[in-house]
Amino acid sequence: MAHTHTEAVHEEHVHDASTKGIWKTFWILLVITIIEVGLAFLHLETGIPPKWLLNSVFVGLTVLKAFFIVAEFMHLRNEIRNLIMTILIPLLLFVWFIIAFLADGDSWKNMRKNLSPGTPAPVEKVKVTNEEAHH
């Protein structure tokens, strides 16, 4: 292990001495955040863009920010493929987590709305279709 360390350090000495890339990432993150806050204020003042579009943009920009933090600040971009895949592939589970759980939440909301006391709409509909079937 000690052997590995010394050589790893030796490799890093060859690294670029400039901090340009770091500051570039900082400006990207800052600009994205400013865009997010700006869009939020635009929506508060004018109601444009519509909420669903605004939220999609927010989620997209958040993932973009996450990409820059992980790739640049955490140097994952410069690691070898084995490590990158070890980190990224398990994250695919989140695709299912998010779709499944949010859909479940939405379904609960609809059931609470449609089945709460004093909500006759669906029952009537069923009756009408039954009567039509009898004729």
Binding site: F94, F97, I98, F101, L102, G105, D106, R112, K113
Partner: peptide, 29 residues
């Protein structure tokens, strides 16, 4: 490597918290 693995476990902890928040928010009128 172990720091990366620890962070992965933390990703799922925070992910679970935020997704449960999202689920409750989606089921609230």
């Amino acid at each position: 490597l172990m720091m990366w693995y620890f962070l992965m476990s933390d990703v799922f902890t925070f992910g679970a918290l935020l997704i449960s928040y999202g689920t409750i928010r989606f089921m609230s009128p």
